[in-house]
C-alpha cells in the first residue's frame, strides 16, 4: 500500500501541475481545407494544428501520438464528419480528456452536419457495396458554396469560444464572404462550359465538385468504394466508357496513379491530377488558389 500511495501522490502532482495559459485559440483541423478556412476566419487570433496533409488519405490515418497531444490542447476541432475520420477521431476524443471538443460540444464542428449531403443512402447500406458512408458523402469541401456556409459556422463558433475577439472573427468572415462570393461567380463563369462533361474518378472524392460544376462521373477506378482498383475492374471500366465522350480521369494526390495510367493509355483519355485540398500541389496555397487551380486544370 505504501508504494500505491506514493504512486497516487506522484500522479496527483503531475496532473495538478498548472497547464499553460494559451493566449490564442487552439484549432485542431482534421484536414488542410478546414485548417485553411479556420485561418481565414481566425486570422492572427488562432493557432492552427492541421492533422493531415494533402498526400495522406485521411480515412486511413491512425490515432498517432502527435494527434493526441494536439487534441489535448484544442479549443475547437473542425473535421468533415460523416464517418470520414471514424477510424481515429473517436480514439483521440476518448483519450484526450478534453470535454469541450467532444461531438456536440462547443468546440466541435463536424462540417457535414451543416450542409446538405450527396450520396445519402436511401436504401439499405451493406458492406458488400464497399466502404459506403450511409450518412452521405463526406468530401463536402469541393463545393465552394459549402465552404462559404462553413465560414459562417466557424465564425460563430469562434465568437462563442473566444468572445473577446468576436468582432475580429465576424469582420474576417464578412471580408472572406465578400471575396469568396465574387470568386464563386467567377468560377461559375469559368466552369460553365464544363457542364454535362463526363469524367472517370478514382473514388467518390469528387462528388461535390462535379455536382457543383454540373459534370458527371461515369465510372470509378475502385471496384467498390475503399477497395483499390484491380485489373478485371479496370477492363470493365474500359468497356463501359467505350463510345462515351469521357473528358478525363480525375485523381487526388493521395490516390494511386497506376490504375489511372493504365486506363489513360488504353482509352486515350488524359489524367487530371487535381489538388483536392490546400497543399495538393504547388499552386494551391490557400482555398482560393486551390479552386483557381482546380478550374484551370479542368479547362
Amino acid at each position: 500500500m505504501k508504494k500505491l500511495s506514493l504512486m497516487i501522490l506522484t500522479l496527483g502532482v503531475l496532473v495538478a501541475s498548472p497547464s499553460f495559459a494559451f493566449a490564442k485559440t487552439n484549432i485542431f483541423a482534421c484536414a488542410p481545407e478546414w485548417g485553411a478556412l479556420a485561418q481565414e476566419i481566425g486570422g492572427d487570433k488562432v493557432d492552427i494544428y492541421t492533422a493531415s496533409n494533402a498526400n495522406q488519405d485521411i480515412h486511413h490515418m491512425r490515432a498517432k501520438p502527435s494527434l493526441l497531444a494536439a487534441m489535448r490542447k484544442a479549443d475547437l476541432v473542425i473535421c468533415s464528419g460523416a464517418s470520414l475520420e471514424i477510424g481515429w477521431l473517436p480514439i483521440l476524443l476518448n483519450k484526450a480528456g478534453n470535454n469541450q471538443v467532444q461531438e456536440g460540444g462547443i468546440g466541435s464542428v463536424m462540417a457535414s452536419d451543416y450542409v446538405p449531403l450527396l450520396d445519402v443512402m436511401q436504401e439499405k447500406a451493406d458492406r458488400s457495396m464497399g466502404h459506403v458512408h450511409p450518412e452521405g458523402n463526406p468530401h463536402i469541401h469541393l463545393d465552394p458554396n459549402n465552404i462559404l456556409f462553413l465560414s459562417k459556422v466557424i465564425a460563430e463558433r469562434l465568437s462563442e469560444i473566444d468572445a473577446s475577439n468576436s468582432s475580429a472573427y465576424q469582420s474576417n468572415q464578412v471580408s472572406f464572404e465578400n471575396s469568396w462570393t465574387q470568386a464563386i461567380a467567377q468560377w461559375d463563369n469559368e466552369g460553365s462550359h464544363l457542364k454535362g462533361q463526363q469524367v472517370v474518378v478514382y473514388h467518390k472524392s469528387w462528388t461535390y465538385l462535379l455536382n457543383w460544376l454540373g459534370m458527371e462521373a461515369v465510372a470509378s477506378l475502385e471496384p467498390k468504394p475503399g477497395i483499390p482498383p484491380n485489373a478485371s475492374h479496370l477492363k470493365q471500366v474500359l468497356q463501359d466508357i467505350e463510345g462515351k465522350n469521357v473528358k478525363a480521369i480525375l485523381i487526388a494526390p493521395f490516390e494511386n496513379e497506376k490504375g489511372a495510367k493504365w486506363l489513360s493509355e488504353k482509352a486515350n483519355i488524359p489524367i487530371i491530377k487535381l489538388p483536392f485540398t490546400v497543399g495538393g500541389n504547388a499552386q494551391s496555397t490557400d482555398l482560393k488558389t486551390m479552386f483557381d487551380d482546380t478550374l484551370q486544370r479542368l479547362k
Binding site: L14, V15, F20, P65, L68, A69, K95
Partner: peptide
Amino acid sequence: AVLPTPIYTEIGG
C-alpha cells in the same frame, strides 16, 4: 492523463 506538453506525454496508473 495526457499532459499539456508539446510532444505527446501520457501518464497513468
